[in-house]
Amino acid sequence: MIEIRNLTKRFGDHLIWEDVSLTIADGESLAIIGKSGSGKSVLLKHLNALLNPDAGSVLIGGQNIFELNYVDMRLVRQKFGVLFQGGALFDSINTYENVAFPLRYFTRMTEQEIEHRVLECLELVNLKDMGHKATSELSGGMRKRVGLARAIVMQPAYLLYDEPTSGLDPVTSEEINELIIRMNRELSITTVVISHDMHSVLRVAERAAFIDEKKLSWYGTIEELRVADHPRMREFIKASEYVI
């Protein structure tokens, strides 16, 4: 379980959001929505301590991750898989090596075991025969799928998605949505999705949190979101050209 308690973040004098509190249960799928620049990605980067807050805490298994020393923090980070907006693939190595990368450094697997695991993950994202491809040869959707394969290769307990469908065509977006649902349901991975693609949010999430006016403005289930009487959130959803 991830507990976010009274989190406040500033960059210099600029307040991003304050007093954000949220609980994400194990196996749950949560979407964090909000306008561009509302600080969704900043909030996501606090969940695995890539950024430190000005106040508040994030508890993983009851332990405040910001109080951990660097070595323990790195162990906590290994419980997370992250799909970055652009995939964040290492461009000096090919697709296969990108997925194998954490296995080579953090496990004592043999080359055969690594190959088996990498191909298993690439198959999960429907890219089994693409291992030899250079990352520069991959399309936007393929890069995200390889990023997802790399994110799950260490069998994380939590998967964080930063704008997983942004910049993709509707068909590829739908493929990514399907994968997010599969990862959450088949592998029971706790999922946090940052998005302003309402179609994707309604497809993949069980709960949603709306960040607006520098605070957590609304929080509830997807069913509650469909009928919520929250003017700014309704305006946001309407502007997303999605009719509930």
Partner: peptide
């Protein structure tokens, strides 16, 4: 800028 350093950190690398 392409978040590869963030990706390294998030995997648990120094």
């Amino acid at each position: 800028v392409s978040e590869q350093i963030d990706a390294l950190e998030s995997m648990g690398f120094n």
